[in-house]
């Protein structure tokens, strides 16, 4: 267990280091949330009051967080394939799932910046108020959201072990999840058949937890669901990684980029 935690810690740290060393990655991470936030503010500022703008602003922050998780999940495996490090990481005695957790959590951590950037951007340019209803629960909801999104990233990354072109599919998931998770508009406005999908997504509960801790409400339920979903994603990730790794070794696709 301690060994797994050490692998997660160094995987997280080195993934952050890798991302910080690419000007392109840094620029994308800085500009994307600001762009999302601006679009959201321009869409809502006429019709909405201060509270609506804050609600939208937190949704926009999760758009950035989700984009970062999705990009990180797809990019981690693709980069390992193109660098030909995937085989080395998989053939190490530490289960590949453990090293994936560190890299996936790093992408979600970078996504946290989008939350801060969005709130500061909204405060400075659009006069969005920034008062926290439950500061302690807000501090709890953030790691819960990062954890659940990060582990959802693992489920997606695991499919890339076997299917080289799954990143294209993963990229397509960016915008539908914004809608399904109620980041721009309440889930209640969506057709009923979308609701089960919404409730299975980490961004839905992460955004709910953060919104309720900022705007008022009882965020503990959403925080609990975030943690529960994280456990479910971890279990799915475990099954996926085990099976996809074996299939990739059977089909000889690990070395292909």
């Amino acid at each position: 267990m301690l060994r797994a935690l050490r692998v997660i810690r160094i995987g997280w740290l080195l993934q952050l280091k890798t991302m910080a060393r690419s000007g392109f990655d840094v620029l994308t991470a800085i500009v994307t949330p600001i762009t999302y936030a601006s679009i959201a503010f321009f869409l809502y500022r006429r019709g909405g009051g201060a509270e609506t703008l804050l609600w939208v602003s937190l949704g926009a922050a999760f758009m950035g967080l989700w984009a970062s998780t999705l990009w990180g999940a797809g990019n981690t495996i693709q980069r390992q394939r193109s660098q030909q490090t995937l085989e080395f990481a998989i053939a190490a005695p530490t289960p590949f799932l453990v090293s994936l957790i560190g890299t996936s959590l790093a992408s979600s951590t970078v996504g946290l910046y989008s939350l801060v950037a969005t709130l500061v951007w909204g405060r400075l340019l659009f006069d969005v108020p920034l008062e926290l209803e439950h500061p302690i629960l807000f501090a709890l909801s953030l790691p819960a959201a990062v954890l659940s999104l990060g582990l959802l990233g693992i489920v997606m990354a695991a499919t890339l072990i076997l299917y080289r072109y799954a990143w294209a599919l993963a990229n397509m998931l960016e915008y539908p999840v914004w809608l399904a998770a109620g980041l721009l508009a309440p889930i209640a406005l969506l057709p009923g058949w979308v609701h089960p999908i919404s409730y299975a997504l980490a961004p839905t509960w992460g955004a709910k937890a953060v919104r309720e801790s900022v705007l008022g409400g009882s965020p503990l339920t959403a925080i609990g669901v975030c943690l529960g979903l994280a456990a479910v994603y971890l279990a799915i990730g475990f099954v996926f990684v085990q099976n996809f790794e074996r299939l990739a070794r059977e089909r000889a696709t690990l070395a292909l980029s």
């Binding site: 060994r3 160094i10 080195l14 280091k17 890798t18 080395f88 190490a92 005695p93 530490t94």
Partner: peptide, 16 residues
């Protein structure tokens, strides 16, 4: 993008 030292530190953890 990592140094040789970081590469070795990472694999040292992966190999226990």
């Amino acid at each position: 993008r990592l140094s040789a030292l970081d590469n070795l530190r990472y694999f040292a953890e992966l190999y226990g």
